[in-house]
Amino acid sequence: MKVLFFAALRETLQHEQVELPVALPATVALIRAALCEYFPQHQQNLNAGNALAAVNQTLATEDSEINEGDEVAFFPPVTGG
């Protein structure tokens, strides 16, 4: 499944997106663990305090479910306004 990245996290990981081999349905927590495995040197940037997750363009929690075709993104805490 595809995961999108934004802002500082995209720059740190040097990827706008990755394709992860994860069985679906999954949860945000499972995807986060898979990302930590994919980017072992950036685990700190990917932990729940430093990277928020969105599923289908809505902020998600760790137990939010992810199904086939869902849009998943990870990004740093937001700083607009």
């Binding site: 934004f6 802002a7 500082a8 720059e11 969105a54 902020l59 990004f75 740093p76 805490p77 937001v78 700083t79 607009g80 306004g81």
Partner: peptide
């Protein structure tokens, strides 16, 4: 405004005399 600052996905990157940096939440 309060919710926009914590919930809407915007990110600021500043240009300072020390170079560019992402604003910390």
């Amino acid at each position: 405004m309060d919710f926009l600052k914590s919930r809407a996905p915007f990110w600021k990157k500043e240009v300072t005399s020390d170079g560019e940096r992402w604003v910390e939440a």
